[in-house]
Design a binder for these strands. Sequence first.
DNA 1: GGACTGACAGATTTCAATATCTGTCAGTCC
DNA 2: GGACTGACAGATATTGAAATCTGTCAGTCC
Lengths: 202, 202
Amino acid sequence: MAETLTAEAILAATEEVLRRYGPAKATVVDVAKALGVSHGSVYRHFPTKAALREAVTRRWLDDIHAHMAPAFDQGRTTAEVLRDWLQRLFDRKRRSHSEDLELFTTFKVLVAESSVVSAYHLECLVGQLTSIIAAGVETHEFVTDDVESTAQAVWDATLMFHHPAHAQEWGNPHVQEQFDAVVSLVVDGLRYNRVPSGTGDA
Amino acid sequence: MAETLTAEAILAATEEVLRRYGPAKATVVDVAKALGVSHGSVYRHFPTKAALREAVTRRWLDDIHAHMAPAFDQGRTTAEVLRDWLQRLFDRKRRSHSEDLELFTTFKVLVAESSVVSAYHLECLVGQLTSIIAAGVETHEFVTDDVESTAQAVWDATLMFHHPAHAQEWGNPHVQEQFDAVVSLVVDGLRYNRVPSGTGDA
DNA sequence: GGACTGACAGATTTCAATATCTGTCAGTCC
DNA sequence: GGACTGACAGATATTGAAATCTGTCAGTCC
C-alpha cells in the first residue's frame, strides 16, 4: 500500500476507470474506490472533476506529441519530411481509432470538453509543422512570407485526416488516396517556384 | 382548403414543423395536425418518417446547389473563379449558421441522418468543382492528371470551411484569414508550373 | 374506387420519484 | 499538523410507469 496518495496515482486510476466505464459513467467515486480511499481525498489533489479529466487528457496528448517529434533524417527533402510527418500523424490516429474504438471515443469526448486542452494540442502540433516549414524555407524548397500562418493552413487543409469528427471516414477504402491527393496539393502549393498570382499561362 | 393532399404541401408543412419544434421534437402527428388531416394520410405519400425527412433535406440542399451554380464570368482567371466559388460556399454556410442557428442545426442533424442525401450533396458540389478545375486545365492555368480526384482533394482540403462539424470555428475573428491561407495554398498547388517531385531547389 | 379516417400494436419518449454524484468541511488519526 | 474520512446539501442521473408516436389497415365517405 502506498505511503501517501499522489497525483500521479490518481491520474493512472482515472485513466483506468475511464477505460473501463467510459467518459459518461466514470465518476470521482469510482476513482476513489479503485484507489481504496474516500472521494474527498481525490479533491485534495484536483479542485474539480473537470480539472482531473483535463489532467488525464493532457497526459494522453503529451504522449502523442512526444511520438510525433521532429524527424529530420539526413538526405531527405523537406517535402518528404513533411509528407512523412503528416502520414505518421494520420496513421497514429487511424490506428488508435480502429484498434481501440472505445478509448478513442473516450478521449474524443475529453478533448471536446476542454477548449484549453485542445488549444494546447493544436499549438504543439502546429508548432512542429512550423519548424518543418521553416526548415523548407531555409533550404529554399518552400517559400512563404508567413511561416506561422502557412503551418496553420497546412494543418487546416489536412483537417479531415486528423480531426476526430471525421474518424468515421478513415475506414473508407479510398481514404489513403484522398490523403495522398490532399498532401500532394498542399506540398505543391508550398514549393518554391510559384508564379505571380493570376498569370499562370504556359 | 386544398382539393387533395399533395406531397409538396406535406413537405412545406414538414419544413415549418421542423423549424418550429426542431428535429428532436417534430413528429408526423404534428405535420398532420398542421395540415388538418390524420397522420395516416401523410403515409400515403411517404412510406416512413425517415423518407419524409430525407425529402425535406434534399429539397433544402437543392436550393444550395442551385445558388452555387457555375459562375464563369468573362475575363477572370480560373483561379479567381475557383476562389470566388469557395468563398461563396463559405459565406453561404457561415451566414446560415450565424443568422439562423436553429435552422442550421436542424439541417445539420437531418443531413447527418441520411448518408444517401449527404453523398448526393457531396456529388453535386464536387461536380461543380470538377467543372471549374477542368476549365482551368483547358486554359493551361491548372495541371492535373486526374481532374476528378483533384476536385475531391480541393473539397477535402477546404473541409473546415464547409463541413457543419466545424461551424463553431466560423465565428472566430481570424477565420477569414485562415480561409484565405488555405485557398492560396490550394490554388498554388493547382497551378501549372510545378516542378518534378523532390527536386525543388532554387 | 380512390382519398381519407381512426383505432390499434409495438416502439419510443416523457416525467416524476428515487438514487447517486459532486464538492465542502468539521472532525479523526497518526 | 497535515493526510485523510465521512456526513452533508444541492445538482445530476437513473428508473419504471404512463403518455405519445410510428406505421398498418379495415372501414367510411364522396
